[in-house]
Amino acid sequence: MHDTIKNLINIEKKIKSILNSLNYKNTPNIIAVSKTFPIEEILPLIEHGHLHFGENKVQEALNKWSDIKKNKPDIKIHLIGKLQTNKVKFAVKLFDYIHSVDSKKLAKKIADEQIKIKKKINTFIQVNIGNEDQKSGINKNELDDLVKFCKEIDLIVNGLMCIPPLNLDSDYFFKEMKKLNEYYGFKDLSMGMSSDYLKALENSATYIRIGSKIFGSRI
């Protein structure tokens, strides 16, 4: 059995254990963050039947996934990195989920593009929950306005997404995100990575983004 499959199974066992302890019924979706890894490293997971994969860059994802998606349409590709508006038309064609909507301009561009190609795309609004200058995401004080705008333009918003500050207790920020997500009545919540996904699950994350704990360290 390939190491990536062993790693995934190990993570699934940990998730099952924590969900049982919390008495949660819904199993989260594990996004295997395959950015920077060659397709040869990803194929074992595909053959194993894993469906959700995450990429940071549009061009890399197009090169890597376009042919595979034609043959395996059940696979879901998630854009988890920042999306520039000039790349939206390419992103909407390939990706099934965009986790990094953080402005009205970007939301409108996605909504317009999906109409052109007759494809409904799932999105998450990225919240800069730590209020960090260097990080993408909308300030939570401006979130209400963006949520309303997305509804007006008929953009599907599944929920909120965040990347909490490094070197601080992510649990604090996950709790805040859970409250925000519940306030808006969203069904999904995208948060948690290799280092903190169990804490994210304790705060109702439904999509967790795991890279190094599946694929190993990036060079």
Rank of each mutant, 00 (worst) to 15 (best):
H2S: 15
T4W: 04
K6A: 08
N7I: 04
I9D: 04
N10D: 12
I11V: 11
S17P: 07
K25G: 11
P28K: 02
I31M: 00
P38E: 12
I39G: 10
L45S: 03
I46M: 12
E60D: 13
E60A: 06
E60H: 09
N63C: 08
I68N: 12
N71S: 13
N71L: 14
K72V: 03
K72H: 14
P73D: 09
I75K: 09
I77G: 03
I77H: 06
G81N: 07
K82C: 06
K82E: 11
L83C: 09
K89P: 07
F90I: 05
Y97F: 10
S100G: 09
L106E: 11
K108P: 05
Q114Y: 05
I121G: 09
N122V: 01
T123V: 05
I125K: 06
V127S: 03
E132K: 14
D133R: 11
Q134F: 12
Q134W: 07
I138G: 00
N141E: 14
E142Q: 15
L143N: 13
D145I: 00
K148S: 15
F149D: 09
F149W: 08
F149N: 08
D154I: 03
I156H: 14
I156Q: 15
V157Y: 13
N158H: 14
C162T: 15
D169Q: 05
S170G: 07
Y172R: 07
F173C: 07
E176Y: 01
N181S: 06
Y184V: 01
Y184R: 06
G185H: 02
F186V: 09
G192I: 04
M193V: 12
S194G: 07
D196N: 14
Y197I: 05
Y197L: 04
K199V: 00
R209Y: 04
R209M: 01
G211Y: 05
G211C: 02
G211T: 02
S212T: 15
K213L: 11
K213C: 02
K213G: 01
S217I: 02
